[in-house]
Design a protein around this nucleic acid. Structure first.
Lengths: 208, 208
DNA sequence: GGTAACTTGTGAACTAATTCACAAGCACCC
DNA sequence: GGGTGCTTGTGAATTAGTTCACAAGTTACC
């Protein structure tokens, strides 16, 4: 299988969200052009993105909305229920634990961890904050697929090392730091400072 | 001025965070190769990124850490104090209002808004939640530069329309929706579902 | 059955981004 | 002052990603 660009995967995820809404409205077919319009891209881009994985449409007709939903879900691996653990029971960590978009899309938050003894044992939604010291043994036992790091940057690399050694292969990192992990581990970093600085750059360099 | 790629801006932001740390440790010069190593890129990439904006290094020596910090801050427009307002006083909105990385990097949260009467008037940190109905007049009066949207997706486009009409030119959007805005407005969207689905894809398609 | 109106899937062309590779500049030392 | 060892800045080459353009397939209708 040819390497798939990250931009393609991001767009597939976007298409899926549109398709789910459209499916909810009862529309049964959609053309690449219509889907492109919703996502701010081009019809050729939509067709190319899908073509990496097969052919899902009917010439002259377009795509069946429900079928395309199923196909994209399959491509993205959304058939599974992924087991997620959150590390860091601060503001961001607890907000994420309660974030509904997680569960509604097949990502199940199994546990939340912190190193602060004052937080361990407290309830967050239906979960109890666990001591991060246990995370390796829990990871082995519960088989977490994804770890979400919502901890201060100075601890992030240490925790990343420990959880990757424990076998976790995917990390969603909210710490403003570049994690280094083994090649078979995938990291996505959400860096608010970086996003804001991108906006700052755009505001500053607008008049050219 | 030639159009600068978003990836370049992201990396500049990353370099800056490394440089600030390095400056704190008292190191006075750095080579493109060393900086590249920290950011997981190549020395040519670092030099090319900087070359779009001028020449900041000394051949044979490398870059002066403090000078490069200043230069990148200037490029990114971090000299200003940017005025930020947050829309949505839910979990994410309030977490963001208290997020320190905001203020330490020159982004000053001036106000937080919500439409829920039960939330309006409540305190969040040193701010009082305001009624979102006021946001246009406040924007005009206080001159917000950046709006952060932390509201449910069904309201996001409506609020985006209102604040762009009120003159805001930059939006950091946490709603899982594609915003459509006038061409002179910059939007950065942080879409957690998209990030998680990217991880799901990576986990699913790892063995090839 | 034929034709008109669509729309997909995909090589080819193009554009953007990254990496290469090397001349030119600087510091240090003899 | 000239040589040595580095490191930048940047055109050229390469690689990656997007858009074009069109053959081929589908439906609707006469």
């Amino acid at each position: 299988m040819k390497r798939i660009a990250e931009s393609t995967v991001r767009r597939l995820s976007l298409y899926l969200s549109f398709l789910e809404e459209i499916e909810g409205r009862g529309q049964t077919t959609i053309s690449s052009d219509e889907l492109a319009g919703l996502g701010g891209t081009t019809s050729a881009q939509v067709r190319k993105d899908l073509s990496f994985f097969g052919s899902f449409g009917k010439r002259g007709l377009g795509y069946s909305v429900p079928e395309l939903c199923v196909s994209i879900r399959e491509i993205l691996g959304l058939g599974h229920k992924w087991r997620v653990c959150i590390v860091g029971a601060g503001k961001i960590g607890t907000a994420l634990a309660q974030y509904e978009a997680f569960s509604t899309r097949g990502f199940h938050v199994e546990a939340i961890y912190d190193s602060d003894p004052a937080k361990v044992g407290k309830a967050v939604d239906s979960l109890t904050v666990r001591d991060v010291a246990r995370i390796e043994q829990d990871a082995a036992k519960e088989g977490y697929d994804i770890a979400v790091l919502a901890i201060p940057p100075e601890f992030a690399q240490g925790v990343a090392d420990r959880i990757t050694r424990a076998g976790i292969k995917a990390i969603l990192n909210f710490a403003p730091i570049q994690l280094s992990v083994p090649a078979d581990v995938t990291v996505r970093t959400v860096n608010m400072a970086q996003e804001l600085e991108g906006l700052s750059f755009a505001l500053t360099n607008r008049i050219e």
